[in-house]
Nucleic acid binder design. Structure first.
Lengths: 150, 150
DNA sequence: CTATTTAGTTTAGGGGGTAAACTATAAAAG
DNA sequence: CTTTTATAGTTTACCCCCTAAACTAAATAG
């Protein structure tokens, strides 16, 4: 098991770290010239679970609340989100998407989807696909990503 | 195939994009407080293929040459690399690692390895490992990452 | 010898991030 | 009810990332 485990670790790092960079560089999405991936990720989180508070977004993105504060300011300036005070707690702000924000997210999602779909269609045979699903479900479980998509 | 392909695309995005973030955030390496991942990636590229020119490093990292110029300056200031002029072309500079650079790379590699090794040991059964290797070799081939590691 | 190309640098302006210090508000303690 | 503590979010300094344009110096092409 040792030698195979060593290879698995190296492959995992190659694919997850360098492969992800490659994928992100290869996706063609105009909106990625205007908005950073982190900004789009905020839109995605709100689209899925919104409206959200800045604190929850910070938790979900795994960054300091000050990073989120600055990010939300930029997204608000770009009219992709709207922020309202919570009725229960005047300190708390609730962030939701605007129509423009939804459109940006949609365009990004479509580009990512198209690229990955093309990758799979051209390189993965039908009988390999089941193995793929099994393995990626496994990895997702290992990395505890269940909360990301319901 | 359609529905499975849709799930595969979604899983791929979840695992590759969000999963990679999760992995990188979970790895505990002191050197990652001092040096950015991109800086360490330079060290890794040089360690593997060095000495390298700035232009080649830019190509390998997929960024603009000005980004590399600035990055190499920081790495030189931190004594992790040494830069010498090429004998054949006075415009060209060759970048190599110092002992300190090798040490930083070693510490980072060990931390990543330990984390991923632990992940696999705790979650992946022996009979799943072969499937893992097959799938990750496949993904690596799809993403054309062969040049990353020999 | 002149014009063009190439390797790398510098700079402006965009983004990311942390942490400390801060304001305003809510909750807890007395 | 008042004071203290905790919390939500903001601001700022300082680090990193990046692109693109403009630049210098050297090599190459004609």
């Amino acid at each position: 098991m040792d030698k195979r485990l060593i290879e698995a670790v190296e492959l995992f790092e190659d694919v997850m770290v360098f492969g992800t960079e490659r994928v992100l560089k290869n996706v063609k999405a105009d909106v990625w010239q205007e908005y950073s991936l982190e900004q789009i990720q905020v839109l995605k989180l709100i689209s899925k679970n919104g409206p959200l508070t800045a604190g929850i977004i910070a938790d979900l993105q795994g960054v300091h609340k000050s990073a989120i504060s600055n990010r939300l300011k930029k997204l608000e300036d770009k009219d992709l989100i709207e922020i309202v005070k919570s009725e229960e707690d005047q300190r708390t702000k609730l962030v939701d998407l605007t129509d423009a924000g939804l459109n940006v997210l949609k365009e990004s999602d479509q580009a990512v989807y198209a690229y990955i779909h093309n990758l799979f269609s051209n390189h993965v045979k039908d009988d390999e696909l089941d193995n793929f699903l099994i393995m990626f479900r496994k990895i997702k479980s290992i990395l505890k990503l269940e909360g990301e998509r319901e």
